[in-house]
Design a protein around this nucleic acid. Structure first.
Lengths: 485, 485
DNA sequence: ATGTCGGCGCCCCGCCGACAA
DNA sequence: TTGTCGGCGGGGCGCCGACAT
């Protein structure tokens, strides 16, 4: 198994040749991430994550273009979320379609400690190397057999090696490798009236080889060795495998739930696949991201927030929205789940995916104006929190713990209670509770928390020692209540 | 849902447009069966079948090119076989690869009666319409862009409409439809020196459209309306979906077992997919086929048998073999399962698939010579059974019941006991037990059998009325023991 | 009987600048 | 700045019979 070590010292397992067969190539992580899109943030191997079976099931439903309707057995011991150690993350690309996906090995753990939270938070900072790239949606001319590919001027100047403009016309041979390490060669020429950058010879082979059509996107990046890499993103989000021909949609959903339930009961490892472009929402969330979102924010009806969306050109853009409801997405199967339990409205059209439900860790709360939120419980004169603004890292971490130790805002218990008890009639009047009880992270005496049924995962098995961490057995903290409370 | 009724009055559900999407075409059953191969025998909707989760799991493993190795939770209440009603059979073809597969809806039932057995036996006789067809493996010349398709002389004369030989050269336009009802047109010409049948114009579009390579096969059939249909069979049995990118192999296996266990516990319907060309063995067996094989034959070490194999040209051929062992394929997970529990050796090379393990219903026992089988328990002077020989139907059915009522040979209980108790040291000496007890089918007083744990499926739930059958509630018979005895 | 190849006609792939949006 | 098109040259697709097996 090949490991790459990034700047932070965290390891990212990229490919397991023994499992994929004779394939010897290693997926380039930068290229994989660029293909996955600007919003995808893979958790780092060795850190703690929160796994949502409901979201996992949702991704399969999206891949199959089918609802989760059929009768699926209840797994009463299966939580709506599971605290896990992420043992490995391997990057893959479908050899037929070039669709990127990740394979993650998770192992449920009953609780986490301070260091795990710190490590998770640290890992979130170093995940995305900001590689130089460009991404263009293919036009009808680009994909027709009549001609080549028209390269946007800025893109060519930023990514491609500089041309020798003493030549007439200036031209060079470009060699780029895709996710499977296949080489593609193109003739890059600067000609025409007015002058423009074009890819000619070799381009049609690429289009037909990848079966690209107008609307699909192609992207080029330069890695740290100045090597040219290229990837594709298909436009039509229609699932190719309408019916799986191997397993019924029902069996797939059952398989996911049963595998998770079995792993939870035995604290044993299990494997999931994450397809970034199949479904809009991630279902394996870094612990720190989850923790900060759930413990660090007040969620209330009428609350204003911002959220990131992907633009056509693979950029990001924030849209403003308002929380219009807090309710279970599936009150029958997943009661009191935090998975997409916020109903939202948007100030403007958010493009293709009009999401009406999001999870709390997907949004950035905006400090409410005084007439809506007269006593902001998060107001700190000395260190105001600006969600979404990059801070000095040490200050940020300090802030994270500071928040937990001194001013946790709503505890999770309060928040969950609020969810259950609040009447959702008035969308303007905020109906959160003011912070009353002590901070969660000060509860170092774990037993009483355990009695209160506040642990992640299964209660009947004792916590196995995490093989990846040799931490002193400090006090464990369990700030999250069970959804089945 | 479109239903077609064949000669016997049995219905075969062919396609469910609402589930596949906007696709309105109905899969032609004859074409589907021809593509599936001569050995495939689909059970008929409305009849009883025996479902083997182990075989189902095996097919998924073959599709994924992966062993069933990972830790899979035990389902102690899941039998190695389940008696089911087959509610529906819908035929499908992968839109990308044209691979044929069938979707079956099964519902566990605890027992069956005499009429169910008769209906199952009847349904086996009417399944295969012997359509006229030809099948040719494509040569390098057939698939190259240099030329067209060379049609074997006999094939063209048998399947294609006759040419007008007054023309110079004789030629016509052929229109054939594939499994998706897509029309393909070819120029059929009789020319060259020596004269031969060729498909020219249109052929290369077909080859590139289906992505055929040398070694793949193409087949043409004429349906009852004299319409030309065509299908393909790919040569390389390498699974296209090496890694599923949606579900881990482990979750798939768990999904199969959990779905079957849930259905068995609740006597509720569940759905399976059967890929005829992914794995060599069927895992949904008509009840009568299973019953005749298990109750109608003696199985012993050293026993001689014949078995059908598919030839290169989509024909059938029998190979002779010897039973060299009787043992569990998976003694840990599937103890005392009848799934491929016979180890066999072959007299000659059986071609590509050298199967070393088969199930008893896959073979045709050959009456052993006297020096090996001194007291053949099946010897009936008045009506000797000739396995594999087509009999008069009424006589055959009579024989089936006759056998059950008067001379069942080994009862299943005896046979299972034999499996467990026999020492397998001597491969020549037959070590079966001689028939001792009375016939199973005479045990009409079901309760005592139920006490002996001889029922299919779950015991705790009562048998739900089969909605497809309005049979008089005759006495039920339960000849099969549980594998977990 | 049929797989492969040389010959060769012509279609269309693909490179070019001219426009226009 | 860049999407589309007419022009047009040449490579290869594809039809033919000649062989060989």
């Amino acid at each position: 198994m090949k490991m790459t070590t990034n700047a932070s010292g965290c390891t990212l397992t990229t490919e397991n040749p023994s499992e994929v067969g004779e394939k010897k190539s290693v997926i380039n992580p930068e290229l994989w991430l660029t293909c996955a899109g600007p919003l995808v943030n893979l958790p780092v191997a060795g850190t703690h994550v929160v796994y949502f079976p409901q979201g996992h099931s949702e991704q399969v439903a999206a891949s199959m273009k089918k609802d989760v309707d059929a009768q699926i057995p209840n797994y009463p011991n299966l939580q709506s979320k599971m605290l896990c150690i992420l043992h490995s993350v391997t990057l893959h690309a479908d050899p037929e379609t070039d669709d990127v996906y990740a394979q993650m090995t998770l192992q449920p753990v009953p609780s986490f400690d301070k260091e795990a939270l710190l490590r998770s938070d640290l890992s979130m900072k170093v995940n995305k190397p900001q590689t130089q790239f460009f991404c263009k949606a293919l036009t009808a001319s680009d994909t027709s057999t009549h001609g080549g590919f028209s390269v946007p001027r800025r893109a060519a100047e930023k990514i491609f090696p500089p041309l020798d403009f003493s030549m007439q016309p200036p031209a060079q041979e470009l060699i780029a490798r895709d996710l499977h390490d296949t080489q593609w060669t193109f003739r890059h020429i600067y000609r025409g009236q007015p002058k423009r950058h074009l890819l000619t010879t070799g381009w049609s082979l690429f289009v037909s080889g990848k079966r690209l059509v107008a609307g699909d996107s192609v992207l080029f990046i330069r890695d740290e060795n100045q090597q040219l890499l290229l990837g594709i993103r298909r436009a039509n989000r229609q699932p190719t495998n309408l019916s799986s021909s191997v397993l019924s949609s029902n069996s797939m959903h059952i398989g996911i739930l049963a595998a998770a339930a079995h792993a939870a009961a035995n604290n044993s490892p299990f494997t999931v696949f994450y397809n970034p472009r199949a479904s809009p929402s991630e279902f394996v969330i870094p612990l720190a991201k989850y923790y900060k979102a759930v413990c660090g924010s007040q969620i209330s009806l009428g609350m204003r927030f911002r959220m990131m969306f992907e633009t056509e050109e693979s950029g990001t853009r924030r849209y403003m929205g308002t929380i219009t409801g807090i309710s279970d997405l599936d009150p029958v199967r997943w009661k009191n789940s935090q998975w997409r339990n916020l109903q939202v409205g948007w100030d403007e059209c958010t493009g293709r995916d009009r999401r009406t439900r999001v999870s709390v860790w997907e949004i950035e709360p905006v400090t409410a104006p005084f007439f809506i939120c007269p006593t902001p419980p998060f107001y700190r004169p000395k260190r105001p929190r600006q969600p979404g603004m990059p801070d000095d890292e040490s200050a940020y971490l300090d802030n994270l713990l500071d928040m937990s130790n001194k001013d946790p805002g709503l505890s999770l218990v309060q928040w969950m209670n609020m969810q259950q008890n609040s009447s959702l009639a008035n969308p303007i009047q905020p109906n959160y509770l003011s912070p009353l009880s002590g901070p969660v992270l000060q509860n170092y005496g774990a037993p009483q928390i355990s009695q209160n049924n506040l642990q992640f995962g299964s209660q009947r098995s004792t916590m196995p020692l995490d093989p990846l961490q040799k931490l002193p057995q400090a006090a464990t903290m369990s700030p999250s209540p069970l959804a089945s409370l």
